[in-house]
């Protein structure tokens, strides 16, 4: 038998009454302190689950509510009738520091697993389940916008351009026929020696990069990396992964928003950079296979990457974790060094 003090609110006015609740062994509760006294079966009450030491509310069948600070007494009464097993379990989870410590470790592990394997795997499956038209829609009119804002027509000699395009066409001939791989040469002061892929299979290469390369094999190594981005559908996957992480973060620590949005943006950016590095690695592995299948020595990739890095100026050490590309050392390891 348990008893406790509570404030009784009838729901018709805001006036409260001090009452005493007595839980008896027959599964009934008796309320005294108001006229007339009340008696209900425990099963007809709706008792809120425990949240920390905030007051509990006990809703009565007559529309009234009892509010009490005596959480332990309520729990004892419920335990005697074996009610709210899960809620009491959760409260125990929320109270004991050893559980909390274990949970903290589990949370860290779950976040790590989700960011490293869960989200990328789900995004990969979802992307490959979508038709290639999705990638094409993603790239629609992108090149036109870039031509308007960033690019000028290529100033390479026509014969050089045609030779490059012919080399490119024969190299991509055996690839997935659903993509229409096209080589687009452009001149740009702003982005210098550079190459990138649009998700529909358009590969843009700047004049400066063509001039930086000492032979076609080096250029093909760069093109192979860009084709890897297309074949592995990185644009679509990156959109999905980044939104999934941002959403999950917003859900998991909803409080952050009230503290400041900066605290929420930073981890999203860090995770985004990590995803980006993973995609670069995948594109590198594709390039490796691509070059090997065409009997092109893979060290050409290392050579052009090193030259690109020298042209762009060195990035400071220690910032690798923030960078969107893997370090040059790691990539040289993969492609091998020039003999």
């Amino acid at each position: 038998m348990t008893s406790l003090n509570a404030r009784y609110f009838d729901g018709r006015t805001a006036r409260g009454h001090e009452v005493r609740l007595r839980f008896d062994a027959t599964g009934h509760v008796e309320i005294t302190g108001i006229e007339p006294g009340l008696r209900f079966a425990l099963g007809t009450l709706s008792i809120s689950s425990r949240v920390g030491n905030t007051p509990r509310s006990i809703a009565l069948p007559n529309g009234a509510k009892c509010e009490t600070d005596d959480n332990d007494a309520v729990d004892a009464a419920l335990a005697a009738q074996s009610q709210q097993r899960y809620a009491r379990l959760r409260h125990r989870l929320e109270t004991a520091w050893p559980y909390i410590l274990a949970l903290f470790v589990c949370t860290a592990a779950a976040v790590w697993g989700l960011v490293n394997y869960g989200v990328p795997e789900i995004a990969r499956r979802a992307a490959f389940a979508m038709p290639v038209e999705a990638d094409r829609a993603l790239a629609r009119s992108t090149l036109e916008v870039l031509d308007h804002r960033l690019f000028e027509p290529s100033q390479l000699e026509a014969s050089r351009r045609e030779a490059l395009e012919a080399r490119f066409r024969s190299a991509v001939a055996a690839l997935d026929p659903r993509y229409e791989f096209r080589l687009e040469l452009r001149r740009s002061e702003a982005i210098g020696a550079n190459a990138f892929a649009l998700p529909d299979g358009t590969i843009v290469v700047t004049d400066a990069l063509v001039q930086l390369a000492e032979n076609d094999e080096e250029l093909l190594a760069v093109l192979a990396h860009e084709i890897g981005h297309v074949i592995h559908r990185h644009a679509l996957r990156s959109v999905m992964q980044n939104s999934a992480v941002a959403l999950l973060l917003a859900f998991a620590v909803g409080d952050v928003v009230s503290v400041t949005s900066l605290a929420a943006a930073l981890p999203t950016m860090l995770v985004g950079a990590k995803f980006s590095r993973d995609f670069e690695r995948e594109a590198d592995r594709f390039a490796l296979e691509f070059l090997r299948a065409r009997h092109i020595p893979t060290y050409h990739a290392t050579v052009i990457l090193q030259r690109l890095e020298a042209a762009a100026g060195r990035t400071p050490d220690g910032l690798d974790y923030l960078s969107s590309h893997p370090g040059i050392e790691e990539r040289a390891e993969l492609f091998g060094r020039a003999p």
Partner: peptide, 12 residues
């Protein structure tokens, strides 16, 4: 803190 960490864990 203890309520929050349980929330974060179960949400994830």
């Amino acid at each position: 803190f203890r309520i929050w960490i349980v929330n974060v864990f179960l949400t994830i």
